[in-house]
Amino acid sequence: MDPFLVLLHSVSSSLSSSELTELKFLCLGRVGKRKLERVQSGLDLFSMLLEQNDLEPGHTELLRELLASLRRHDLLRRVDDFEAGA
């Protein structure tokens, strides 16, 4: 399986429902409101961002910004580990 997708799945499974709600709010300018209403998990949101090329294995800035906004430094370390091994 693609290591970047494994990372996104790992991050998604670590998010609380309130954190997902916050991420959806933060992505309002990037993803349409109707699409965001269908998001049920972090993976749903990340999939939309992947489709729009806002997220890519070599383009993790948005993911970092979102996780920093949540103050999830543990998840930021996972992104660091991914990039160190990528």
Rank of each mutant, 00 (worst) to 15 (best):
residue 28 L to K: 15
residue 66 L to Y: 07
residue 52 Q to E: 11
residue 13 S to D: 14
residue 30 R to H: 08
residue 30 R to Y: 10
residue 40 Q to T: 14
residue 70 L to A: 04
residue 37 E to F: 07
residue 50 L to S: 15
residue 37 E to I: 07
residue 14 S to C: 10
residue 71 R to T: 07
residue 13 S to M: 15
residue 21 T to E: 14
residue 79 V to D: 00
residue 1 M to S: 09
residue 67 L to K: 00
residue 73 H to C: 12
residue 42 G to P: 14
residue 83 E to Y: 06
residue 24 K to E: 04
residue 54 D to P: 05
residue 80 D to N: 09
residue 61 E to R: 10
residue 82 F to W: 11
residue 66 L to V: 05
residue 82 F to H: 05
residue 19 E to G: 02
residue 71 R to F: 06
residue 51 E to P: 05
residue 25 F to Y: 11
residue 33 K to W: 11
residue 20 L to M: 06
residue 35 K to W: 02
residue 2 D to L: 04
residue 31 V to K: 01
residue 14 S to A: 10
residue 40 Q to M: 10
residue 46 F to K: 03
residue 48 M to F: 11
residue 9 H to V: 06
residue 8 L to P: 00
residue 82 F to Q: 04
residue 43 L to M: 15
residue 26 L to T: 06
residue 9 H to D: 13
residue 3 P to G: 13
residue 83 E to C: 08
residue 81 D to A: 09
residue 24 K to F: 01
residue 76 L to I: 13
residue 2 D to W: 02
residue 84 A to V: 13
residue 19 E to N: 04
residue 70 L to R: 02
residue 21 T to I: 07
residue 83 E to T: 09
residue 71 R to V: 05
residue 37 E to C: 09
residue 62 L to Y: 11
residue 75 L to F: 01
residue 73 H to I: 07
residue 37 E to N: 10
residue 71 R to C: 12
residue 4 F to D: 00
residue 17 S to M: 10
residue 69 S to C: 11
residue 47 S to P: 03
residue 15 L to C: 03
residue 43 L to A: 13
residue 15 L to F: 04
residue 12 S to F: 11
residue 70 L to I: 13
residue 59 H to Y: 07
residue 57 P to N: 08
residue 50 L to N: 15
residue 6 V to N: 15
residue 80 D to F: 05
residue 3 P to R: 11
residue 33 K to Q: 13
residue 36 L to A: 07
residue 32 G to S: 12
residue 56 E to C: 12
residue 28 L to G: 13
residue 82 F to E: 02
residue 48 M to W: 06
residue 66 L to S: 04
residue 24 K to Q: 05
residue 32 G to W: 04
residue 36 L to D: 03
residue 47 S to D: 14
residue 41 S to G: 05
residue 41 S to W: 03
residue 81 D to V: 08
residue 17 S to K: 14
residue 60 T to S: 06
residue 27 C to F: 04
residue 81 D to M: 08
residue 16 S to H: 05
residue 14 S to P: 03
residue 39 V to F: 04
residue 18 S to L: 08
residue 62 L to I: 11
residue 34 R to T: 12
residue 61 E to L: 09
residue 28 L to V: 14
residue 39 V to H: 01
residue 59 H to T: 07
